[in-house]
Every structure is written in structure tokens, then in C-alpha cells.
Write a protein that binds this DNA or RNA. Structure first.
Lengths: 192, 192
DNA sequence: AATCGTTGTTAAGTAAACATAACACTTGCT
DNA sequence: AGCAAGTGTTATGTTTACTTAACAACGATT
């Protein structure tokens, strides 16, 4: 156990993700087109994603080989059961993350969506499940969350000494000015 | 404004990120080696990341061209001011995300770290700032967070009808069984 | 029936990141 | 001094994911 943190290779899990960012968007494009237009062709996917038909054709034939995309009798694009599952999971993650950034952290909606889009396909099932439970609980406490996101917006960028911060305590230095490049700020040890 | 969501190209922001996942780890490897060994050479970076020296040499010379990595008078590797800034930001993001997954969501530490590692370099400065403020506030409420992460662990996977869920309400369908592939679950509209 | 437009595929090129292998250069030992 | 080991670079190849351009197949219009 804990192989990932000791064999100096755990960081490559990023590339071994089930779907890459672009694959995620191919799948969601098909899903979106089918629910909007009722069908999805190579050209539609290319148009929606703003890439060339050639690129879409190659990528999609790859996804057919991998069993994520299929064709219906009229050669329109379909998601396989697995492809559909992946697309839905990623779409759900997008919703969850956007909701968290926007409603809990009180962030700008555009930035919230942009960040969610980058992360949506990388969340583990565990994170995804925990996040949705977290949001359900937190969002039911309307007054609490209102106050919270207000406090976040108004908080300063440096810890005030009076309130000992559990984030800073382990290292003994304040993590708040983390945008300041030159401030040395030792962190918990990592193997790389 | 809101160009990102309408020009059918916003999803590529992923590839236009300032640093890729691997670049992030090259920078952090140098940082880590210098604080552990006092120096960093191509071979050390390659050894730590478990890649070939050739790959490390190429990648690092690229990073020198980009101005993120430099050499000291003895040809040991150094982070430039910008490189150092990036490394620290990403390391901070890792700490924040791990803390969130582990202490707020109550997730398994190994999974928490693995997920944080995938995301750390993708967080916008806004997310990062908001997250640290959020954690500071939340972690100061020890009893609240204790109860929260317990509730998350014990929560079921389906919404119970009695408590109207703000996540499900917009779509009218329950978002909880999001691991179930076949359950149709309309989401807020996206352009792809 | 011939042509034009759309569609999908294929070919060839680019760029990022890895791999392996061969090489040059230094350093330290004997 | 000479050789072996360690270090860094370079050459070449692979994979992924895009580009543009050429091409074949098909349908609709005239």
C-alpha cells in the first residue's frame, strides 16, 4: 500500500487517467449533440469543439477502437454504455465543482466554470462522492453558507496572529501569502 | 466577456495552462532536491522522478529557455524567480487540496493526495485564494468540521425526499446516483 | 446526367513528452 | 597516466493530439 507515494512514479497517475481532457470533451460533445439535435456526426462534433473534421475523425475512430463510441445503423455517433457512463460522471463532476467554487467559495462564475472544466475529468470517484455529500449538507444550511462565502470574500490575505490557523501551524509559517513568490514556506514533505 | 463559454474553444484552456503537469513536477523536484540535498542536478531530478536522464535533460533545457530554470556558477540547477514562484504556488495548492479532501471531505489520505496531485497545477489563483480562506474559517470550527466529515462518511448515495436538495432541484432529478451510468440526469447546459 | 456541396477519411506535418542508445566530458582510483 | 564510473547531451523513435490539404463517396440541384 501507499506505493504511489514511494516509488517515485506516483505523479504519472495523471497521464494514466482513464480519459484525457480532450477525450472527455469528445464524449460530452456527443452527449450534448444528441440531446440537442437528436444526433451527432463527426462534423457536428468538430464544429462544436471548434477543431478540424480530420482531427475529430481520427480521435473518434480511436474512441471507437477503445469501445467508448459506437455508430448507430445510420452511421451516426453513439456513446457506448461505458462512454455514456464516463460522460455523465464528468458532467456531474463539472456541476459539483462549479457549484462548490461558485456557491461555497463565492467565486466569479466564469472562473468557477473554467476551473471546474479543467478538473472535472480528474476527480476520483471517492472525491466525487464525498463532494456531492458535502454539498448536500452544506447547501441545506443556507444561512451558514451565506455567511461563509461573505467571510471568504472579505478575508485578508495574511493570517492574523490572534486566531491560530490550523493550516499554518504544522509548518510554523503562514500559508496565506502563497502568491508571494519569495516568501519561504516549508511544506509537508513530498517525495518530489 | 464570457468569451470562454461561447467561442467553442474555451475547453482548450486546459492545454494553455501556464505549466503542464510534468513541468510542475520538474520544478517541484528541483525545489525538493535543493532543500533536501542542497543541490539539484539533471541526474538527481531524473532519479527522483524516475525518468531517463535524457528526458530530464531535454525537459530541463526547455525550462531554461522558458526562463523557469537556471544554473548556478557550478552548473547546478536553480529555479528562477518565476520558477520558484510557480513551484511554491503549486506546492501550496497541493497542501490546500489535500487538507480539503482529507480533513473536510474525510477522504482516505492516499486518495486525497493522489487527487490533489492531479489538480494542484490547474487551480486558478482565485480558487487557490478562496480555498485557503475557506479552509482557515472552516478548520477553526473544529466541532463543526468533525460532525460534517462524519455526516459525509455516513451519508447514503441517494437523496431522501424529505430534504429538498439544492443540487437536484434545478434539474428535477437526483444527482446523487451519479455513478450509475444509465440514469438519465439532465444538467445545466454547456456549449459542449 | 453532370456538377456542386457536404461529409468522412486519409496523408503529411507540428509539438509536447516520454523512451533507448550512443557519445563526450569530467573525476577519482590505482 | 590510464581506465572506469558517473554525468550531461544528442540522436532517433513512439505516442497523443492537433493542423492543413487532398480525396472519395454521396445527395441534391439544375
Amino acid at each position: 500500500m501507499s506505493q504511489m507515494t514511494n516509488d517515485s512514479t506516483y505523479w504519472r497517475a495523471f497521464d494514466e487517467n482513464k480519459v484525457s481532457h480532450s477525450v472527455a470533451h469528445y464524449l460530452m460533445a456527443i452527449d450534448h449533440l444528441r440531446s440537442e439535435l437528436g444526433y451527432a456526426r463527426v462534423t457536428d462534433v468538430a464544429g462544436l469543439m471548434n477543431i478540424s473534421r480530420g482531427a475529430a475523425s481520427l480521435a473518434l475512430s480511436h474512441l471507437k477502437e477503445k469501445g467508448l463510441v459506437e455508430e448507430d445503423p445510420n452511421r451516426f455517433l453513439l456513446l457506448s454504455e461505458e462512454g455514456n457512463s464516463l460522460a455523465r460522471t464528468i458532467e456531474h463532476n463539472f456541476v459539483l465543482l462549479t457549484c462548490f467554487f461558485e456557491n461555497v467559495l463565492g467565486m466569479d462564475p466564469d472562473i468557477a466554470r473554467a476551473d471546474a472544466c479543467k478538473i472535472e475529468h480528474l476527480l476520483s470517484e471517492e472525491s466525487s462522492k464525498a463532494l456531492i455529500r458535502f454539498l448536500r449538507i452544506l447547501l441545506s444550511k443556507k444561512d451558514f453558507i451565506q455567511e461563509l462565502s461573505q467571510n471568504i470574500k472579505n478575508a485578508g490575505d495574511v493570517c492574523e496572529g490572534d486566531a491560530p490557523c490550523p493550516l499554518c501551524e504544522p509548518s510554523g509559517e503562514c500559508l496565506m501569502p502563497h502568491t508571494d513568490a519569495l516568501k519561504s514556506c516549508p511544506l509537508q514533505t513530498r517525495t518530489d
